[in-house]
Amino acid sequence: MTTNTAAEADVQKTGRPILEVLNVTKTYGEGHTAVTAVADASLSVEEGQFVSLLGPSGSGKTTLISMIGGLLTPTSGTIRLGDQMVSDMTKKELTSLRAERVGFVFQSSNLVPFLTARENLLYVASLPKNHNRKVAAKRADELLGELGLSDRANNIPEKLSGGERQRVAIGRALMNDPDLILVDEPTAALDTALGRQVVQLLAREVKQRGKTGIMVTHDLRMVEYTDQVFEILDGHLTKSDGTTPPAGH
């Protein structure tokens, strides 16, 4: 893939991938009820790369991307995004990191029920310290157009189909032009055709805008749109070479 080689060349120039996860472990709880959801995971992703994360239910996928996106703090290990050490941030810093640098599409598409599709996008645009309403309005309309939601923009989530809601959630994740896009099972609520369309859109967004994307999926058919494949099993992360089918599928 040409973009991939370009990105690799770029890395060779700077010598540093944009996202670096090093020996990260997350343990929930304490004592004999402790659950280690992610154990000693390391991965690095370069700018412009879209990677997929595969693994059976309960293997630690959501936990891992939550830590990367600044929602959870690792028990040990480090996470670096660009020149920011995410793993060392205070709660307050993590809040603005999420507002400004991370776009998250949650596992169950989660929208504010009393805001229209368009307002759901505009709200997150108002979160970063220096925001511009006009620019935000323009970008929201653009994104809704790209996602095929122009004529659904003024509907509240209740009036949208599952797939439409999923696309609004993706629009919201892209709204603040984040450096990092994290997507948790984007295709779960969609049929194959629509799922494919959504994943293609995400891949295009990552490539065109030079972002970094991580997509959690159960669906092996979606892997073809990504540059790297990681597998996680009982919290242990491995990079897949893409030849052997991942465990658990």
Binding site: T95, R98, A99, F104, V112
Partner: peptide, 9 residues
């Protein structure tokens, strides 16, 4: 919770 997750303080 959702708003906190998307970066609202």
């Amino acid at each position: 919770t959702l708003l906190r997750a998307t970066g609202a303080s």
